[in-house]
Protein backbone atom coordinates (compact mmCIF):
# COMPACT_ATOMS: atom_id res chain seq x y z
CA UNK A 1 0.00 0.00 0.00
CA UNK A 2 2.83 2.40 0.74
CA UNK A 3 4.69 2.07 -2.55
CA UNK A 4 2.05 3.66 -4.88
CA UNK A 5 1.70 6.75 -2.71
CA UNK A 6 5.47 7.00 -2.67
CA UNK A 7 5.68 7.06 -6.48
CA UNK A 8 2.90 9.62 -6.64
CA UNK A 9 4.85 11.94 -4.39
CA UNK A 10 7.99 11.47 -6.50
CA UNK A 11 6.10 12.29 -9.69
CA UNK A 12 4.62 15.43 -8.16
CA UNK A 13 8.07 16.65 -7.15
CA UNK A 14 9.05 16.76 -10.85
CA UNK A 15 6.08 18.94 -11.80
CA UNK A 16 6.16 21.55 -9.07
CA UNK A 17 8.53 24.37 -8.33
CA UNK A 18 10.78 24.66 -5.27
CA UNK A 19 9.01 26.34 -2.35
CA UNK A 20 11.05 29.55 -2.63
CA UNK A 21 10.11 29.94 -6.30
CA UNK A 22 6.47 29.30 -5.52
CA UNK A 23 6.30 31.85 -2.69
CA UNK A 24 8.27 34.44 -4.67
CA UNK A 25 5.82 34.14 -7.56
CA UNK A 26 2.85 34.38 -5.19
CA UNK A 27 4.46 37.37 -3.49
CA UNK A 28 5.08 39.26 -6.74
CA UNK A 29 1.56 38.48 -8.00
CA UNK A 30 0.00 39.67 -4.73
CA UNK A 31 2.11 42.84 -4.75
CA UNK A 32 0.89 43.58 -8.29
CA UNK A 33 -2.74 43.00 -7.26
CA UNK A 34 -2.26 45.19 -4.19
CA UNK A 35 -0.71 48.07 -6.15
CA UNK A 36 -2.92 48.01 -9.23
CA UNK A 37 -6.28 46.81 -7.89
CA UNK A 38 -6.63 47.07 -4.13
CA UNK A 39 -4.96 50.47 -3.69
CA UNK A 40 -7.06 52.29 -6.34
CA UNK A 41 -10.22 50.74 -4.89
CA UNK A 42 -9.29 51.75 -1.34
CA UNK A 43 -8.34 55.25 -2.49
CA UNK A 44 -11.90 55.87 -3.75
CA UNK A 45 -13.39 55.31 -0.31
CA UNK A 46 -10.67 57.05 1.72
CA UNK A 47 -10.77 60.11 -0.54
CA UNK A 48 -14.56 60.18 -0.23
CA UNK A 49 -14.37 60.07 3.59
CA UNK A 50 -11.30 62.28 3.95
CA UNK A 51 -13.23 65.13 5.50
CA UNK A 52 -15.56 62.92 7.47
CA UNK A 53 -19.03 61.52 7.03
CA UNK A 54 -20.92 64.86 7.00
CA UNK A 55 -18.82 66.14 4.08
CA UNK A 56 -19.41 62.80 2.33
CA UNK A 57 -23.16 63.06 2.81
CA UNK A 58 -23.18 66.67 1.66
CA UNK A 59 -22.38 65.49 -1.87
CA UNK A 60 -25.81 63.86 -1.95
CA UNK A 61 -27.64 66.97 -0.75
CA UNK A 62 -27.14 68.49 -4.18
CA UNK A 63 -30.14 68.10 -6.52
CA UNK A 64 -27.72 67.69 -9.46
CA UNK A 65 -26.27 64.57 -7.85
CA UNK A 66 -29.74 63.08 -7.56
CA UNK A 67 -30.66 63.90 -11.12
CA UNK A 68 -27.38 62.24 -12.23
CA UNK A 69 -28.23 59.12 -10.24
CA UNK A 70 -31.75 59.12 -11.68
CA UNK A 71 -30.50 59.49 -15.25
CA UNK A 72 -27.98 56.67 -14.78
CA UNK A 73 -30.72 54.38 -13.47
CA UNK A 74 -33.09 55.31 -16.31
CA UNK A 75 -30.39 54.73 -18.93
CA UNK A 76 -29.52 51.29 -17.55
CA UNK A 77 -33.22 50.43 -17.20
CA UNK A 78 -33.72 51.00 -20.93
CA UNK A 79 -30.39 49.75 -22.32
CA UNK A 80 -30.09 46.50 -20.37
CA UNK A 81 -33.55 45.03 -21.19
CA UNK A 82 -33.17 45.92 -24.88
CA UNK A 83 -29.79 44.23 -25.05
CA UNK A 84 -31.23 41.32 -23.10
CA UNK A 85 -33.96 40.72 -25.70
CA UNK A 86 -31.38 41.11 -28.46
CA UNK A 87 -28.92 38.79 -26.70
CA UNK A 88 -31.48 36.00 -26.34
CA UNK A 89 -32.72 36.37 -29.94
CA UNK A 90 -29.20 36.47 -31.38
CA UNK A 91 -28.05 33.50 -29.31
CA UNK A 92 -31.14 31.50 -30.33
CA UNK A 93 -30.58 32.19 -34.04
CA UNK A 94 -26.81 31.60 -33.92
CA UNK A 95 -26.68 28.64 -31.53
CA UNK A 96 -29.71 26.62 -32.60
CA UNK A 97 -29.44 26.76 -36.40
CA UNK A 98 -26.89 26.40 -39.18
CA UNK A 99 -26.87 29.10 -41.84
CA UNK A 100 -24.43 30.79 -44.17
CA UNK A 101 -22.59 33.79 -42.76
CA UNK A 102 -22.99 32.67 -39.16
CA UNK A 103 -19.33 33.23 -38.23
CA UNK A 104 -19.45 36.67 -39.82
CA UNK A 105 -22.63 37.55 -37.91
CA UNK A 106 -20.99 36.46 -34.63
CA UNK A 107 -18.03 38.75 -35.39
CA UNK A 108 -20.39 41.65 -36.09
CA UNK A 109 -22.12 41.10 -32.75
CA UNK A 110 -18.73 41.53 -31.04
CA UNK A 111 -17.85 44.59 -33.10
CA UNK A 112 -18.91 47.28 -30.56
CA UNK A 113 -16.33 45.93 -28.11
CA UNK A 114 -13.49 46.89 -30.41
CA UNK A 115 -14.79 50.37 -31.25
CA UNK A 116 -13.43 53.17 -29.07
CA UNK A 117 -16.18 54.64 -26.84
CA UNK A 118 -15.40 58.09 -28.24
CA UNK A 119 -15.99 56.84 -31.80
CA UNK A 120 -19.20 55.20 -30.58
CA UNK A 121 -20.44 58.56 -29.36
CA UNK A 122 -19.30 60.32 -32.52
CA UNK A 123 -21.30 58.09 -34.89
CA UNK A 124 -24.55 59.11 -33.19
CA UNK A 125 -23.55 62.77 -33.42
CA UNK A 126 -23.04 62.26 -37.16
CA UNK A 127 -26.48 60.63 -37.42
CA UNK A 128 -28.61 62.81 -35.16
CA UNK A 129 -26.54 65.94 -34.41
CA UNK A 130 -27.45 69.40 -35.74
CA UNK A 131 -25.26 68.81 -38.82
CA UNK A 132 -25.98 65.08 -39.04
CA UNK A 133 -28.06 63.01 -41.46
CA UNK A 134 -31.32 63.41 -39.56
CA UNK A 135 -30.35 66.68 -37.86
CA UNK A 136 -32.47 69.10 -39.94
CA UNK A 137 -35.48 66.78 -39.87
CA UNK A 138 -35.22 66.31 -36.09
CA UNK A 139 -34.88 70.06 -35.60
CA UNK A 140 -37.94 70.74 -37.75
CA UNK A 141 -39.97 68.31 -35.64
CA UNK A 142 -38.49 69.59 -32.37
CA UNK A 143 -36.99 66.25 -31.36
CA UNK A 144 -33.71 66.30 -29.46
CA UNK A 145 -31.50 63.21 -29.47
CA UNK A 146 -27.96 64.57 -29.19
CA UNK A 147 -27.28 66.55 -26.00
CA UNK A 148 -30.40 64.89 -24.60
CA UNK A 149 -31.42 61.64 -22.90
CA UNK A 150 -32.17 59.58 -26.08
CA UNK A 151 -28.58 60.08 -27.30
CA UNK A 152 -27.20 58.94 -23.94
CA UNK A 153 -29.38 55.84 -24.06
CA UNK A 154 -28.35 55.06 -27.66
CA UNK A 155 -24.63 55.44 -26.92
CA UNK A 156 -25.02 53.22 -23.85
CA UNK A 157 -26.85 50.56 -25.86
CA UNK A 158 -24.00 50.59 -28.39
CA UNK A 159 -21.18 50.08 -25.90
CA UNK A 160 -23.06 47.35 -23.99
CA UNK A 161 -24.44 45.71 -27.14
CA UNK A 162 -22.47 42.40 -27.11
CA UNK A 163 -22.43 41.63 -23.36
CA UNK A 164 -25.44 39.33 -23.05
CA UNK A 165 -25.25 37.80 -26.55
CA UNK A 166 -21.63 36.76 -26.14
CA UNK A 167 -22.35 35.00 -22.83
CA UNK A 168 -25.34 33.14 -24.25
CA UNK A 169 -24.01 32.08 -27.68
CA UNK A 170 -21.29 29.64 -26.45
CA UNK A 171 -23.52 28.43 -23.63
CA UNK A 172 -26.45 27.60 -25.94
CA UNK A 173 -24.11 26.10 -28.53
CA UNK A 174 -22.69 23.75 -25.89
CA UNK A 175 -26.20 22.70 -24.82
CA UNK A 176 -27.31 21.79 -28.35
CA UNK A 177 -30.92 21.42 -29.40
CA UNK A 178 -31.85 17.96 -28.12
CA UNK A 179 -33.91 19.10 -25.14
CA UNK A 180 -35.80 21.65 -27.24
CA UNK A 181 -36.49 19.04 -29.91
CA UNK A 182 -37.82 16.66 -27.29
CA UNK A 183 -40.16 19.38 -26.04
CA UNK A 184 -41.33 20.01 -29.62
CA UNK A 185 -42.02 16.31 -30.18
CA UNK A 186 -44.05 16.25 -26.97
CA UNK A 187 -46.22 19.02 -28.41
CA UNK A 188 -44.90 22.15 -26.72
CA UNK A 189 -45.26 25.44 -28.59
CA UNK A 190 -42.16 27.42 -29.48
CA UNK A 191 -42.78 29.87 -26.67
CA UNK A 192 -43.41 27.06 -24.13
CA UNK A 193 -40.20 25.36 -25.25
CA UNK A 194 -38.22 28.52 -24.69
CA UNK A 195 -39.85 29.37 -21.38
CA UNK A 196 -39.75 25.91 -19.76
CA UNK A 197 -36.75 24.23 -21.40
CA UNK A 198 -34.25 26.77 -22.73
CA UNK A 199 -34.62 29.52 -20.13
CA UNK A 200 -33.92 27.32 -17.07
CA UNK A 201 -30.82 26.01 -18.86
CA UNK A 202 -29.39 29.43 -19.65
CA UNK A 203 -30.52 31.12 -16.43
CA UNK A 204 -27.05 31.60 -14.90
CA UNK A 205 -25.45 32.69 -18.15
CA UNK A 206 -28.24 35.21 -18.55
CA UNK A 207 -27.72 36.66 -15.06
CA UNK A 208 -23.97 36.77 -15.70
CA UNK A 209 -24.42 38.74 -18.91
CA UNK A 210 -27.01 41.07 -17.37
CA UNK A 211 -24.87 42.11 -14.39
CA UNK A 212 -21.82 42.79 -16.58
CA UNK A 213 -23.99 44.69 -19.06
CA UNK A 214 -25.53 46.69 -16.22
CA UNK A 215 -22.15 47.58 -14.69
CA UNK A 216 -20.91 48.92 -18.00
CA UNK A 217 -24.20 50.71 -18.75
CA UNK A 218 -24.10 52.58 -15.44
CA UNK A 219 -20.38 53.30 -15.65
CA UNK A 220 -19.92 54.26 -19.30
CA UNK A 221 -18.04 57.52 -19.67
CA UNK A 222 -16.44 58.11 -23.08
CA UNK A 223 -19.38 57.46 -25.40
CA UNK A 224 -21.88 59.19 -23.13
CA UNK A 225 -19.55 62.16 -22.70
CA UNK A 226 -19.59 62.82 -26.46
CA UNK A 227 -23.38 62.84 -26.83
CA UNK A 228 -24.42 64.33 -23.49
CA UNK A 229 -23.47 67.99 -23.75
CA UNK A 230 -22.86 68.01 -19.97
CA UNK A 231 -25.98 69.97 -19.05
CA UNK A 232 -26.06 69.92 -15.25
CA UNK A 233 -29.22 68.45 -13.79
CA UNK A 234 -30.41 67.31 -17.22
CA UNK A 235 -27.95 65.25 -19.22
CA UNK A 236 -25.37 64.32 -16.60
CA UNK A 237 -24.99 60.69 -15.69
CA UNK A 238 -23.12 59.68 -12.54
CA UNK A 239 -19.69 59.26 -14.21
CA UNK A 240 -20.10 62.64 -15.95
CA UNK A 241 -21.14 64.24 -12.64
CA UNK A 242 -17.97 62.81 -11.08
CA UNK A 243 -15.91 64.42 -13.84
CA UNK A 244 -17.53 67.84 -13.39
CA UNK A 245 -17.07 67.81 -9.62
CA UNK A 246 -13.48 66.66 -9.99
CA UNK A 247 -12.66 69.39 -12.51
CA UNK A 248 -14.20 71.96 -10.16
CA UNK A 249 -11.80 70.78 -7.43
CA UNK A 250 -14.69 69.42 -5.34
CA UNK A 251 -12.62 66.34 -4.63
CA UNK A 252 -14.62 64.96 -1.70
CA UNK A 253 -17.93 65.29 -3.54
CA UNK A 254 -16.45 63.73 -6.68
CA UNK A 255 -15.15 60.75 -4.74
CA UNK A 256 -18.41 60.47 -2.78
CA UNK A 257 -20.37 59.94 -6.01
CA UNK A 258 -17.52 57.76 -7.32
CA UNK A 259 -17.74 55.61 -4.20
CA UNK A 260 -21.34 54.75 -5.12
CA UNK A 261 -20.09 53.56 -8.50
CA UNK A 262 -17.28 51.62 -6.81
CA UNK A 263 -19.89 49.95 -4.57
CA UNK A 264 -21.82 49.00 -7.70
CA UNK A 265 -18.62 47.43 -9.05
CA UNK A 266 -18.12 45.47 -5.83
CA UNK A 267 -21.71 44.22 -5.86
CA UNK A 268 -21.21 43.20 -9.51
CA UNK A 269 -18.09 41.23 -8.59
CA UNK A 270 -19.89 39.48 -5.71
CA UNK A 271 -22.82 38.43 -7.92
CA UNK A 272 -20.40 37.39 -10.66
CA UNK A 273 -18.43 35.18 -8.25
CA UNK A 274 -21.68 33.67 -7.00
CA UNK A 275 -22.81 32.85 -10.55
CA UNK A 276 -19.41 31.30 -11.34
CA UNK A 277 -19.72 29.19 -8.22
CA UNK A 278 -23.15 28.02 -9.46
CA UNK A 279 -21.62 27.14 -12.86
CA UNK A 280 -18.94 25.09 -11.10
CA UNK A 281 -21.51 23.30 -8.97
CA UNK A 282 -23.72 22.44 -11.96
CA UNK A 283 -20.70 21.24 -13.90
CA UNK A 284 -19.52 18.99 -11.10
CA UNK A 285 -23.05 17.60 -10.72
CA UNK A 286 -23.21 16.95 -14.47
CA UNK A 287 -19.76 15.37 -14.44
CA UNK A 288 -20.78 13.07 -11.58
CA UNK A 289 -23.81 11.74 -13.49
CA UNK A 290 -22.48 9.83 -16.52
CA UNK A 291 -20.01 6.98 -16.05
CA UNK A 292 -17.21 8.75 -17.92
CA UNK A 293 -16.96 12.35 -16.72
CA UNK A 294 -16.20 14.70 -19.60
CA UNK A 295 -15.63 18.12 -18.06
CA UNK A 296 -16.88 20.90 -20.28
CA UNK A 297 -15.19 24.25 -20.46
CA UNK A 298 -16.62 26.88 -18.16
CA UNK A 299 -18.76 29.25 -20.22
CA UNK A 300 -16.98 32.43 -19.17
Amino acid sequence: MSSPSHTVRRARAGTTEPAWVKWTLIGVALAFVFLFLLLPLAAVFTEALRKGVPAFLEAFQEPDAWSAIRLTLITAAIAVPLNLVFGVAAAWAIAKYEFRGKAFLTTLVDLPFSVSPVVAGLIYVLMFGAHGWFGPWLQAHDVKIIFAVPGIVLATIFVTFPFIARELIPLMQAQGTEEEQAAQVLGASGWQTFWHVTLPNIKWGLIYGVILCNARAMGEFGAVSVVSGHIRGQTNTMPLHVEILYNEYQSVAAFAVASLLALLALVTLVIKSFVEWQFDRLEKAAAALPPEPVPQSVPV
Binding site: L37, P40, R216, G219, E220, A258, A262, L269, K272
Partner: peptide, 14 residues
Protein backbone atom coordinates in the same frame (compact mmCIF):
# COMPACT_ATOMS: atom_id res chain seq x y z
CA UNK B 1 -12.25 41.53 -12.81
CA UNK B 2 -12.40 44.88 -10.97
CA UNK B 3 -11.23 46.86 -14.04
CA UNK B 4 -14.19 45.42 -16.00
CA UNK B 5 -16.66 46.40 -13.28
CA UNK B 6 -15.26 49.74 -12.09
CA UNK B 7 -16.35 52.70 -14.25
CA UNK B 8 -13.34 54.11 -16.09
CA UNK B 9 -13.87 57.64 -14.78
CA UNK B 10 -13.68 56.32 -11.21
CA UNK B 11 -10.48 54.44 -12.01
CA UNK B 12 -9.09 57.61 -13.57
CA UNK B 13 -9.64 59.93 -10.62
CA UNK B 14 -8.61 57.26 -8.14
Amino acid sequence: DLPFALPTAVAGIS
